[in-house]
């Protein structure tokens, strides 16, 4: 690319202080396609040196490699053995190939947990947190400062408090005999976590996780140009029309991002274990709890390794979708 010298630097015209930083990055962007020989020259503006740069990155990479990457890859192997937590198969596990996978895929309790997870994710995250988060962000955007701050703080507290604490708060609130909810609704003796375990978990998770959607939509809504909202109002559009024609086109990307992230997190959430531990029976044994129960409680490590791998695959799919979204947005 010899003849592109003048055009390769978009900021060549202006070397102002702000443009300086941007110029640095744009040069880097250009470097990405270089022949390796030339790249050796201007790779290092601050004279760190490549050896030292590697030394700087190494500690973090070591931790990540051992405690994140390796376990993920190891799942592949564990899932192909009949490893158990104790007993003879702990000492000398044997290789069973895809045996575990065929077993898992034929196991009704796996489908039970998958179905419960779908319900949990669908109702609590995709519909619940998404909908409530957006509704709150939209209706609070013009509301007086203190009302807004109060609601936001309450919602955020539900999100930041430790899982063990909020779990107990809900156990107390939904208690059969002394719980506040039964007192308010006049339904004494109703054991929510026993009679309606999934519904309770879903309501709980909406309460727990709406904060993220609220903040994300809050940020997204503030990026809608006010002039467009005003144009719609001058044209006499109703609230719903404004939402449909002006707001949604702007925040569609955010909505997708939000949905993907909360789906990923909710799917992997372990807090329901603290509330029901999967019970009664397996009525609320969502996938994350199912893995724990088969692996640590029942000790069937190989079998649960296979399930873990299936979860990993689902996570990878969601994360790749998310990254693709991010990339598309940063391009446009």
């Amino acid at each position: 690319m010899p003849n592109t010298s003048r055009h390769s630097d978009p900021s060549g015209v202006n070397d102002g202080p702000a443009a300086g930083a941007a110029a640095g990055t744009s040069h880097h962007g250009a470097v990405a396609v270089d022949p390796p020989l030339a790249a050796a020259a201007a790779t290092d503006v601050v004279g760190l040196g490549r050896a030292r740069a590697f030394a700087f990155v190494a500690p973090a990479l070591l931790l990540i490699g051992v405690f994140l990457l390796f376990p993920a890859l190891w799942t592949l192997y564990i899932g192909a053995t009949d490893y158990e937590r104790t007993g003879p198969k702990h000492v000398s596990p044997s290789f069973v190939g895809v045996g575990n996978y065929t077993d898992v895929l034929a196991d009704p309790s796996f489908y039970n947990s998958l179905w419960l997870s779908l319900l949990f994710v669908g109702f609590s995250a995709v519909i619940g947190q998404n909908g409530l988060g957006f509704a709150l962000a939209w209706s609070l955007r013009n509301v007086a400062g203190w009302v807004r701050r109060t609601v936001e703080t309450l919602v955020l507290f539900a999100w930041i408090l430790p899982g063990s604490v909020v779990a107990f708060l809900w156990i107390a609130m939904l208690d059969r005999d002394g719980g506040t909810v039964n007192a308010l609704l006049g339904t004494p003796g109703l054991a929510w976590f026993v009679d309606y375990p999934m519904a309770s978990l879903i309501i709980f998770n909406i309460w727990r996780g709406t904060a993220f959607s609220l903040m994300l939509y809050g940020a997204a809504l503030s990026s809608v140009p006010p002039s467009q909202l005003e144009t719609a109002r001058l044209a006499g559009a109703s609230g719903l029309q404004t939402l449909r024609d002006v707001v949604f086109p702007h925040i569609r990307g955010h909505a997708l991002t939000n949905t993907l992230l909360i789906t990923l997190w909710t799917f992997n959430d372990f807090t329901p274990f603290l509330l029901t531990a999967g019970g009664p029976g397996d009525d609320s044994e969502i996938v994350s709890v199912y893995v724990y129960n088969t692996a640590i409680r029942d000790g069937r490590l190989g079998y649960s390794g296979a399930i873990s791998l299936l979860i990993l695959v689902a996570n990878v799919v969601l994360a790749l979708l998310y990254l693709r979204m991010l990339r598309k947005r940063s391009v446009s």
Binding site: I64, V66, F67, L68, L69, F70, P71, A72, W74, T75, I78, Y83, L261, L264, N268, D269, F270, V287, S288, V291, Y292, A295, I296, L301, S304, G305, S308, I311, L312, N315, V316, L318, A319, L320, Y322, L323
Partner: peptide, 23 residues
């Protein structure tokens, strides 16, 4: 960087509890 971003969201406690325990 891309792999890091991917890893950070994919390898959750739920997915990795078995190998982590074993490791």
């Amino acid at each position: 960087l891309y792999v890091l971003l991917l890893l950070s969201s994919v390898v959750t406690g739920t997915a990795a509890m078995v190998p982590l325990f074993l490791l």
